[in-house]
Simulated assay, not measured.
Amino acid sequence: MTVAELVWDMDGTLLDSTVVVPAAFVRAVARLGGQPVSPAQAVAAYPLGTPEVILAHLVGRPLGPHETDFYYQELQDGQVAPYPGIVEALAALRARGRAVAVFTGASTRGARMLLDAAGLEVDMLIGGDHIRRPKPAGDGVLLAAERLGVAPGGIAYIGDSPLDLRAAAAAGSVGAAAAWGHLYDAEEPADRTLARPEAALELLG
Score class of each variant (00 low, 15 high):
G149W: 08
I86C: 04
R31D: 10
A169D: 03
P65W: 04
L194P: 02
L143R: 12
I155T: 01
L6I: 08
G127M: 07
W180M: 12
I131E: 00
P62N: 11
L14F: 00
I86P: 02
P47D: 00
D116K: 15
G153E: 13
E187W: 09
A81N: 12
A28V: 08
V29W: 00
A190I: 02
T104H: 11
R132L: 04
P136R: 04
G33S: 08
P84A: 15
L115V: 09
R196W: 11
G153F: 07
F70A: 13
A176F: 07
P51D: 09
G34V: 12
L143H: 07
G12M: 03
I86V: 15
H57M: 02
Y71K: 09
V19A: 13
I54N: 10
P22H: 05
G97P: 02
Y157F: 15
A81I: 11
A91I: 08
G159W: 09
M1P: 14
A199Q: 14
S173T: 04
G34F: 05
Q35G: 12
G153T: 12
E198M: 12
A30S: 10
A179Q: 12
D69R: 15
D129H: 01
P162H: 02
V100L: 03
M1G: 13
A99M: 11
L120V: 15
L194M: 10
A42Y: 08
L183E: 11
E74K: 08
L6Y: 07
T108Q: 11
V29R: 01
T50M: 07
A95E: 14
L142F: 06
M113R: 14
L148M: 09
F70D: 04
P62M: 10
G34M: 06
P152L: 06
Y46H: 12
L55F: 12
A89C: 14
A151L: 11
